[in-house]
Structure formats: C-alpha cells, structure tokens
C-alpha cells in the first residue's frame, strides 16, 4: 500500500516545494509516486496544500483519505487535516506558529519550531527545508543524501550559495529531532 503525506500551510511557505521535493526524491529512489496540489479558486493566495503518495507498486489514487503523515505549517492546516490522519501516523507541527495542540492521542506528534530555526539561520524562507530535514529523519522514506540531491536538481545548480543554505537548513531540521 502507498505511503501518503499531506503538506499544508499559507501560500508562500513553500508547502508545494516540500511535497514536490519529497516526491522527486522518492522517484529518484525508484518508487512510484504521485503529487497532487490543491487547485482552483482556493489556492489563489491564502492556503495551499498538496498530497504525495509513495509506493513500490502503481498508485491507484493520488488522493489521501487517510494519510500517514501531516505536515502542518500553520494552525488552519492542523484543524483541516488532523482528523484525517491514520491511527499511528505522525503530525509534524510548525510549533513556531501553531500554539494549539492536536486532538489526536493516537498519533505521534513531532513539533519543530522551523520558523524560529530559520530566523536564527538568518533566512526565514528556509523554514520549509528545515521541516523537511525533520520529516526525512523521522520517516526515513529516503536517505538525507538522496533528498538533498533531488533538492539541488530541482532548484538548479546555478546558485551554489543557495544550495549551501538549503543543505544547512536541512541539517538543522534533521539534527533538531533527537533519535
């Protein structure tokens, strides 16, 4: 069966990039993947979300009725999706912004203050990559190396400095989670 994750947040937080980079790295590892962005009237500004499915076989539906993972970058995302997560799944919280606690005792909560960590790095725009560091560490869907290779190929190798910042952001999130 497919592993499914929903990434959700404000427009501008880079949630589509989170999903896309995960799907891309899983593809590079040889998995079947689908990536489905929310589309239509609701994505013009405001919130954005996307669903990624990863499997060893053909994926029937790119929609996740019971995702294994939720990455909530803001409070509305948590409220919208927390009840869909499958029992035993994981909710990743951007705890810099989300002060509410999930109402799901049956899932694992993984709080990462990724906005603050990004500020500390001096670049608020990499909060999403920091969160991806934590996500990859926790889920182990792909290795850090494969993920970073994908990220670089997506963003293009023209800007070495940007690649370096992303690499550091990823490590920050990856290391933030203690085993």
């Amino acid at each position: 069966m497919a592993t499914k994750a929903i990434f959700s947040g404000f427009g501008g937080q880079g949630v589509l990039m989170m999903g896309y980079s995960l799907a891309h790295s899983a593809m590079n590892k040889g998995y079947h993947v689908t990536f489905l962005p929310s589309y239509g009237a609701e994505v013009r500004g405001g919130t954005a979300n996307c669903t990624v499915a990863i499997a060893e076989e053909e994926i029937a539906s790119p929609v996740a009725s019971e995702p294994d993972y939720l990455v909530a970058m803001n409070s509305p995302s948590l409220f919208t999706f927390q009840n869909k997560i499958t029992a035993g799944g994981v909710i990743f919280l951007n705890s810099s912004i989300i002060k509410d606690h999930p109402n799901r005792p049956d899932v694992d909560i993984c709080s990462v203050p990724c906005s603050e960590l990004a500020e500390e790095m001096g670049n608020s725009r990499v909060a999403n990559i920091i969160m991806m560091g934590a996500f990859i560490k926790k889920t182990g869907i792909v290795t850090a190396e494969i993920y970073l290779q994908s990220l670089e190929s997506i963003l293009g190798s023209k800007k070495k400095s940007a690649a370096e910042i992303n690499r550091r952001a990823f490590s920050t999130g990856f290391d933030y989670l203690k085993n």
């Binding site: 896309y20 799907a23 593809m27 993947v33 689908t34 990536f35 489905l36 589309y39 994926i59 929609v63």
Partner: peptide
C-alpha cells in the same frame, strides 16, 4: 480530467 491534469507523476 482535472485529476490527471493537476497530478504529477514520473
């Protein structure tokens, strides 16, 4: 359909 148009796959 809209799903096919919007969805990404390798």
């Amino acid at each position: 359909d809209g799903m096919m148009g919007q969805m990404m796959e390798p």
